[in-house]
């Protein structure tokens, strides 16, 4: 993709007095991409998001969103194309869900007819007439998503979006985001829930103490981390020894049983392994390759660099 990135951070730092919260971050997020910020609590994810939203000014470096510094006053007009769901979303409690969405729709210049479809999308139509202070945490979060997707934003920021949602709601939540992405929206998500986020991300940025530790697709990150693919071969009884002997010069064999061989395969040798397994013929009955999960990659980068 050669077009200008939707979001660009160039050596961006944010300091509060002597505390550096974001430390020299370089990032590019392309149009239509689903970009996930991952890191411990207090790693600086929310601040990075606030910098992208122009809610806070960078102490040094440059932030560009759609080619403009979002902290500039003139960026205000472009905000109609943004959607944001803060980590702990707060509403005017005395208003009803419908009143709130109408209010936000009016500020965004979105037709009120769109409000009911947004409420429907997040499954809140039945409670739209109730005051927000009677809503559960999950309902408030859904209302938060509803206001974020008002006007079908081109750029969506979701800060820990699924906290407090049960699994089925999480699935609905990601479905809505998928729909928006299908329509071409760029999505920036920060999250703790590594297992659920890995399927949503085109690229992942690992943030530790305000620094960008690693950034890339899941595959690229596992390659960078050098984490192996754990592989189990189901082998016809009596042939495990021969299979293991054949593969041993190239791969680390971990365990041999009567009918299986466990080995570790470096990420960049997956194809080579498959070729060799194919050469072994019909004695190999099945192959199960477990690519490193985001969880392992996360631990590798976060703990590895600490040591």
């Amino acid at each position: 993709m050669n077009s200008t990135p939707t979001i660009e951070l160039k050596a961006v730092s944010k300091r509060y007095d002597k505390l550096t919260v974001v430390d020299g971050i370089d990032l590019q997020i392309n149009k239509g991409e689903s970009f996930v910020l991952v890191g411990h609590n207090g790693a600086g994810k929310t601040t990075i998001m606030k910098l992208m939203l122009g809610l806070t000014q960078a102490s040094s470096g440059q932030v560009l969103v759609m080619g403009e510094n979002p902290a500039n006053k003139s960026f205000s007009a472009r905000r109609g194309m943004l959607g944001y769901l803060p980590e702990s979303v707060s509403f005017y409690h005395h208003m009803t869900g419908l009143e709130l969405l109408n209010y936000y729709a009016s500020l965004k210049g979105v037709a009120k007819t769109e409000v009911s479809s947004c409420l429907e999308q997040v499954n809140l139509s039945a409670s739209a007439g109730k005051r927000v202070n009677t809503y559960s945490k999950g309902m408030r979060q859904r209302l938060g998503l509803a206001q974020a997707i008002l006007g079908k934003p081109e750029l969506l920021f979701l800060d820990e979006p699924t906290t407090g949602l049960d699994p089925s709601l999480r699935r609905d939540f990601y479905q809505i985001i998928s729909d928006l992405r299908a329509a071409g929206a760029t999505v920036v998500i920060s999250s703790h829930s590594l297992s659920e986020i890995e399927t949503q991300a085109d690229r992942i940025a690992l943030i530790r103490s305000g620094k960008l530790v690693a950034c890339g697709s899941l595959d690229a990150l596992s390659e960078q981390a050098g984490l192996p693919v754990h592989t189990r071969l189901a082998v016809a009884t009596g042939h495990t020894g021969r299979v293991a002997a054949q593969l041993e010069p190239h791969f680390e064999i971990q365990k041999i049983t009567d009918h299986s061989v466990d080995l570790v395969c470096p990420v960049n040798k997956k194809i080579s392994l498959l070729r060799q397994v194919a050469d072994l013929g019909e004695v190999v009955l099945d192959i199960n390759m477990n690519a490193p999960r985001l969880n392992e990659i996360y631990l590798h980068f976060m703990n590895g660099e600490k040591a």
Binding site: L53, G80, P86, F91, Y92, G109, F157
Partner: peptide
């Protein structure tokens, strides 16, 4: 203090 300003400022409002 209520946290509502955070959201309001992300809207196209000066």
């Amino acid at each position: 203090e209520n946290g509502t300003m955070l959201l309001l400022l992300t809207y196209p409002v000066r």
